Simulated assay, not measured.
Amino acid sequence: MSLPDKYASIIKSISKGLGFEFCGIAKAKFLEKEAPLLENWLNKNYHGQMAYMANHFDKRLDPTLLVDGAKTVVSLIYNYYPIEKLPSGPEDLKLAKYAYGRDYHFVIKEKLNAMLSVLQKEIGEIGGRAFVDSAPVMERQWAQRSGIGWLGKNSLLLNRSMGSFFFLAELIIDLEVTPDIPSTKDYCGSCTRCVDACPTDAITEAGVVDGSKCISYFTIELKEELPLSAKGKFENWMFGCDICQDVCPWNRFAKPNREPKFLPHPDLKNMTVKDWEEITAETFGKIFQKSAVKRTKLQGLKRNIDFLKP
């Protein structure tokens, strides 16, 4: 076995031990094919007010600009499909499934740092960085290149064994590792359920989402007043949205996660519509102290809840 093969085996073994469901490896190089697609997406202003998406254009496409001497991008999948049944009735106010438990940035970053540390102990001095949706990394494209899934019509990474209810994370390292075979087959076929189900028509073509029309953008990223043109289209989503994932046939394979930190805060189970409408700073702080929902702040959540009223 060659050293790069051995390193690939070690990396995958460590990732499994840390609870990652899938681990794929790709050679770190400029994303030549993706460059014009990203440029076109930005030129159409599909990023809306997410100005950060237009920043660091070159770094998004070239991992060697993020990590000196980068040779390998390791892509990882971490399941967040809920263990418990979440509010889903027509009257219920809903959060995206990933937002009920502990903020994933911290949970997964801790695991990635542990992974890098174990790698350094087993192999020797390795330079690298861990990324969890926190830097200009085209995570879905790297995951596809590493063979752990393909890009669905809703632009999310899909995996045949578990659908799409998972987080993506990356380790970019300066170690030469044998890459996996990229995913080239589209298993969505002629299915258009996600396109048809999106109430704001955010999916403009297969694999392309106008971010500025997405319910997740409106309820999380947009900091000003919500546009009246979107009134009545949110289907009771007050933070994020799972519609295009809920209707995806591949998510029939989703299995409950094994991460205790992703369990919902106990108080969330008893929240009524009235409780949400009257939520106080004290309650917000208690329930969402370690949650991704903190990103929208109390004021933003209240704005979203008010917007859902008839």
Results as ranks from 00 to 15, higher is better:
Ser2Arg: 09
Ala8Thr: 07
Ala8His: 10
Lys12Ala: 12
Ser13Tyr: 11
Lys16Arg: 14
Gly17Phe: 00
Leu18Glu: 10
Glu21Ala: 13
Gly24His: 02
Gly24Ala: 02
Lys29Phe: 09
Phe30Gly: 06
Leu31Gly: 02
Lys33Leu: 08
Asn40Glu: 12
Asn45Arg: 10
Tyr46Leu: 02
Tyr46Ala: 01
Gln49Ser: 14
Tyr52Met: 02
Ala54Pro: 05
Asn55Cys: 10
His56Val: 02
Phe57Gly: 04
Asp58Ser: 13
Lys59Glu: 14
Lys59Pro: 01
Thr64Tyr: 05
Leu65Gly: 13
Leu66Pro: 01
Ala70Cys: 06
Ala70Glu: 08
Ala70Arg: 07
Val74Met: 10
Ile77Pro: 05
Tyr80Cys: 01
Tyr81Glu: 05
Tyr81Ala: 09
Pro82Ile: 04
Pro82Ala: 08
Lys85Gln: 13
Glu91Asp: 15
Leu95Asp: 05
Lys97Asn: 14
Ala99Phe: 00
Gly101Phe: 12
Glu110Gly: 04
Met115Thr: 02
Leu116Ala: 09
Ile123Phe: 00
Glu125Ile: 06
Val132Tyr: 06
Ser134Phe: 04
Val137Gln: 05
Glu139Cys: 03
Gln141Met: 12
Gln141Pro: 00
Gln141Glu: 14
Arg145Phe: 03
Gly152Ile: 05
Gly152Ser: 06
Lys153Gly: 07
Lys153His: 13
Leu156Val: 10
Arg160Lys: 15
Ser161Met: 09
Gly163Tyr: 10
Ser164Phe: 09
Glu170Trp: 07
Ile172Tyr: 11
Asp174Thr: 12
Asp174Arg: 11
Asp174Asn: 15
Glu176Asp: 15
Thr178Ala: 15
Thr178Asn: 13
Thr178Glu: 15
Asp180Met: 08
Thr184Tyr: 02
Lys185Leu: 11
Arg193Asp: 12
Arg193Asn: 13
Ala197Arg: 11
Asp201Lys: 13
Ala202Phe: 08
Thr204Arg: 13
Ala206His: 11
Val208Gly: 02
Val209Asp: 04
Ser212Cys: 06
Ser216Glu: 09
Phe218Ile: 10
Glu221His: 06
Leu222Phe: 06
Leu222Tyr: 10
Leu226Gly: 03
Phe234Arg: 00
Asn236Gln: 04
Asn236Tyr: 03
Trp237Ser: 05
Met238Trp: 00
Cys241Asn: 04
Ile243Arg: 01
Cys248Gly: 01
Trp250Ile: 02
Phe253Asp: 01
Asn257Ile: 08
Pro260Met: 05
Lys261Gln: 14
Leu268Asp: 07
Lys269Met: 00
Glu278Leu: 13
Ala281Ser: 15
Thr283Ala: 12
Gly285Ser: 13
Lys286Arg: 14
Phe288Trp: 06
Phe288Asn: 00
Lys290Pro: 00
Ser291Asp: 07
Ser291Lys: 08
Ala292Asn: 05
Val293Cys: 03
Gly300Pro: 01
Ile305Asn: 02
Phe307Ser: 08
Phe307Cys: 05
Lys309Asn: 14
